[in-house]
Every structure is written in structure tokens, then in C-alpha cells.
Computed example of a mutant assay.
Amino acid sequence: MKKLIISLSVLFSGLLFSQEAAETPMQTNNRWTFGGGIGFGFGSNNYFNLSAAPRVGYMLTSDLEGGVLGSVSWQKSNAYSSTMFGIGPFLNYYIARTFFVSANYQHYFINYKDKIYDVKANANEDALYLGGGYMQRIGNNSFLQLGLMYNVLWKENSSIFSSGLSPNIGFVVGL
């Protein structure tokens, strides 16, 4: 249920943003791209999550984009709270503006507090996501991206993440 709410929220906010972007004429000489996603979730034990992931890219060729992306996530529940920041480079290769192959590296800074045992911890973790997905045009030069990424650096018992697999929904303007 949490993933459904997050997905619908990101989709709705992106569609609102894309309506504004679609009204401006496309600039063919501008190679900069902008996008990202936002999300939130609710769950049992008063769980709440709020996240944002902005990105800025530059079209190196007509099909290859490189750039920087960031992420911030706040989570809290009756049992714990955490704040996580991530930043790193990405590379996307677009296939006929319908599919994309992607690689991105993220370095995460994590601040965690266990409310039950009164334990605080700070950690860092690296992630190298490889994957791809489908793109749907939603405006003049705006796209919805639906993809699946896998963190090839993920290790089951030593990662803060529960899985190496990461579905993603995002938006990009400027392609």
C-alpha cells in the first residue's frame, strides 16, 4: 500500500509540473535537463516517510546524458527515525526516447536513531545502481520515466537497505 501511495503521489505531482513545462516552446539548443521525483509514505506504528530526489543533467550527445543527482529522505515511526542524504553522478542512454539504460552512483550519509533501545548511529554507504526502463512523453519535451535499478554493491547483512533492487519513477524536462 505504501508503494502505491508513493507512486501515485509522484505521478500526480509530476503531471502537474509537466503541464506547466508543456506550455513553453521547446528550445532545441538547450542541452540542460532537469527532473527528479518526490514521494511520501505511511504505514503501521505511525510510520511516515518523505523523500525528494532532484537531478540536473547535460546532453553529451543526442542520446547520452550525464549529470548529478541527489536524494534526501526522512523516516520516522514509533520504533526509529532516520535521515538520509545521497549525492552522485549518473549516466543515461536513451533509445528512441522510449527506453533508457541508466547507471548512477550514490554516496549516502545516514543518521539513525532507535527509539526503543535509545541507540544513535551515523553511517555512510555507497551504491552503484544499474538498470533501465520505459519513458512516456507527457509534454513538449517532458518525460515520465519508469524503471528498475539494481545496486551491484548491495550486501545482504551489511547494508542499511533491505534489498538491492530499486523500482523508480521520475520525471525529466529538457530531452
Rank of each mutant, 00 (worst) to 15 (best):
K3T: 12
K3Y: 14
K3I: 14
I5W: 02
S7H: 05
S7Y: 02
S13N: 01
G14V: 01
L15W: 06
L15R: 07
L15N: 09
F17W: 13
S18R: 02
E20Q: 12
T24K: 10
M26D: 15
N29T: 15
T33P: 00
T33N: 14
F40R: 05
G43A: 10
N45P: 04
G57S: 13
M59P: 04
E65H: 07
G67N: 11
S71W: 04
S73C: 07
K76G: 03
S77W: 03
N78F: 12
A79F: 11
M84T: 10
L91T: 15
Y93P: 09
Y93E: 09
Y93G: 05
F99I: 00
N104I: 02
Q106L: 05
K113M: 01
K115W: 03
I116G: 09
Y117D: 09
V119T: 03
A123N: 07
A123I: 03
E125C: 03
G132P: 00
G132C: 05
Y134D: 06
G139H: 00
N141M: 09
L144M: 10
Q145T: 09
S158K: 05
S158C: 03
F161M: 07
F161Q: 08
S163R: 10
S163P: 09
S166P: 09
F171E: 03
V172Q: 02
